[in-house]
Amino acid sequence: MIEIKNLVKSFPDRCVLDDISADIKEGELFSVIGPSGIGKSTFIKCLIRLLRPDSGRIIVDGQDIASMTNEFALAKVRRSFGYLFQEGALFDSLTVLENVAFGLKYLTDIPGSEYPRVVKEKLALVGLKDVEHLKPAELSVGMKKRVSLARSVAAEPKYMLYDEPTTGLDPVTTGMVKDLILDMREKLKITSIVVTHDLNLALEISSRVAMLYAGEFVEVSEPSRFRQSEHKGVKEFMEISHLSRK
């Protein structure tokens, strides 16, 4: 379980997260929505301490990582997480095989001789085959995202963080990524946190949706209740996204 208590994060020009609190339960698919530049990526990066919050607590399975200073302890907590980056963040100099095996080397005790088999399995999980020898530059945007997802789940994390998983994808690939997120949750029992500006996606796949507006979670509820929210920010966002409140 992840407990977020009074999370605050500012940059020199503005306060991005202002006293945010939420509990993310085991097995849940929790989405954070909001327009681009509102602080969603900042939020998700704080969760895994890629960014250090100014104040507040982030308790992951009983350990507060917001105040953690020991690099090794932090790395240990990070092992519970998989992270799908917005642009994939695949290592350009490595092949698909090496990219997916990267986490296996540092996060698991699987012997090196097993990597090709495990990588093949993980790639199959995201619907890819015979791409092991390719470099990221030879992949399409959608394939990059799927390879990145295979790399993130290779070490079988307990929590999965998705940063704008459908940005820049065509409708077909978006549908594929949506199914993959649901698959990861169902097949691997991974607790998932998705940050996206794609309200349609969030309402379709999430168990709960949180709206980030002016640095706060102004609405946190199940999709059906979220649609009925009376908050000005939610209503505006629904209208911009051309979604019916029903």
Partner: peptide, 18 residues
Amino acid sequence: GTMQVTEQIDALYTLGTN
């Protein structure tokens, strides 16, 4: 620098290395 701007440095943290 390219790794920094394309989040590959952050990816290293998430994949268990520094």
